[in-house]
Design a protein around this nucleic acid. Structure first.
Lengths: 223, 223
DNA sequence: TACAATCACTGACACTGTGTCAAGATCTCC
DNA sequence: GGAGATCTTGACACAGTGTCAGTGATTGTA
């Protein structure tokens, strides 16, 4: 019968999700770098071999984690946009802060993304986890672009800032770089007399000012 | 005698340098990720065990590569400052372009740094390679800060931009993020209708504008 | 020159982790 | 109850890291 295959499909997806949960749990304990396939399998109370039925290899499992991470980040960006209806620029600012909160509240997700960011996509099958990640990334990007376009329309972002898609990529790059710096080099930053929070404030403010109209109008208040 | 120990010391340093050269050569062939200690030893025509006399472990060898990378980057930054005597802001812009050139002309050095950037310093012995890296990073930072301070003095950078040290960290983070994005996600960027070069131009321009005086003065020309 | 001490160097080993496969266990349907 | 599909695993081969006892070369000493 057909509904049997359907149930099996659901069970498969459920188990896949469980395995990702197990991987996240292990990564939370020992760090994503030190996580081994064996520990993940043990945490899920399955044999290691079965893991390779659900994920091609370890990088593939990490990509599955990345997909979740990007989905979560996307949700945070949407929420950020929703809670700042004032202006497009305020939305972008809220997304910056949301990105920071994400990196702190979901460190494993964040670490997975940071690792993912190091590699170029190998580009192949459209059913791969990698492809799913790029799709998720697209959605995040679209969310940013929508707020940038809105900001240009409502005047909170200067029109000559550049093409919205390119500005979105730029801001993503800026924030990714800053957050990585703040997350991994806090001791160095403190050694220079500041701290991660001040760096992030500075970075958000500078970026926001860069987007805003050139002269200090009342509009420019909320940096 | 004493000069024997001295010669041995020199030989040791020479061999250490040779080993790093070998590592760089291997990394250039197979990528820094896939490089193995065995290949490095074979390239240097030594046993693998000897490698562990000169470097504690593989990460330690990578840190030695990072130190070289940072030294090279520092030299590029100094050169950038020297060739743009016009203004502090122009110097900073030149450093941004120098960073981009570095990432493209010394990909192995760049990759080592990008990997290094993922980890927090473990902070311990002051004779470790890690400590040497942080020292080198300090020098790079100082070079940036000097140009920022100069820019504030000569008026090419607005005085209320923030504390120079913090601005330096911010710009470093911005550029590191953008370059990583441009280097690893060029296919994604092209998929959105742009390319790595346009992203970099946009990022450099936006950052430079953020530093400059608020209204478009003639000064603002060289973005 | 002999011979001890120190240093440079290596082969072989133990260990950890990945990915694969043949075969056993379980489920489904006739 | 048994054929066939599907799920699951133990055991294996392999690759890479890090270590150490021991060999051989170099230096200082009698």
């Amino acid at each position: 019968m057909n509904y049997i295959a359907e149930r099996r499909q659901e069970e498969k997806e459920r188990r896949r999700a469980d395995l990702i949960d197990a991987a996240l749990a292990v990564a939370a304990e020992v760090g994503i770098e030190a996580m081994t396939m064996d520990e993940v399998a043990r945490k899920a109370r399955l044999s290691r071999a079965l893991l390779y039925v659900y994920f091609q290899n370890k990088p593939d499992l990490l990509l599955a984690i990345c997909e979740r991470a990007l989905a979560s980040l996307h949700a945070r960006f949407e929420a950020a946009a929703a809670q700042e209806p004032a202006s497009g620029r305020a939305q972008i600012g809220a997304m910056g802060r949301a990105f920071v909160a994400f990196s702190r509240e979901e460190p494993v997700h964040y670490d997975a993304l940071a690792k993912f960011a190091l590699h170029s996509p190998t580009g192949l099958a459209s059913d791969s986890n990698e492809h799913a990640c790029l799709k998720c990334g697209d959605r995040v990007h679209e969310t940013m672009v929508a707020s940038i376009e809105r900001g240009i329309r409502d005047g909170s972002i200067r029109a000559d800032v550049g093409p919205p898609a390119l500005v979105g990529l730029t801001l993503w790059g800026y924030m990714a770089g800053i957050i990585q710096l703040a997350a991994t080099k806090s001791t160095v930053i403190e050694h220079r007399g500041y701290d991660a929070d001040r760096l992030i404030d500075q970075a958000l403010r500078l970026a926001s000012e860069a987007l805003g109209p050139r002269q200090d109008l009342p509009h420019d208040r909320h940096a």
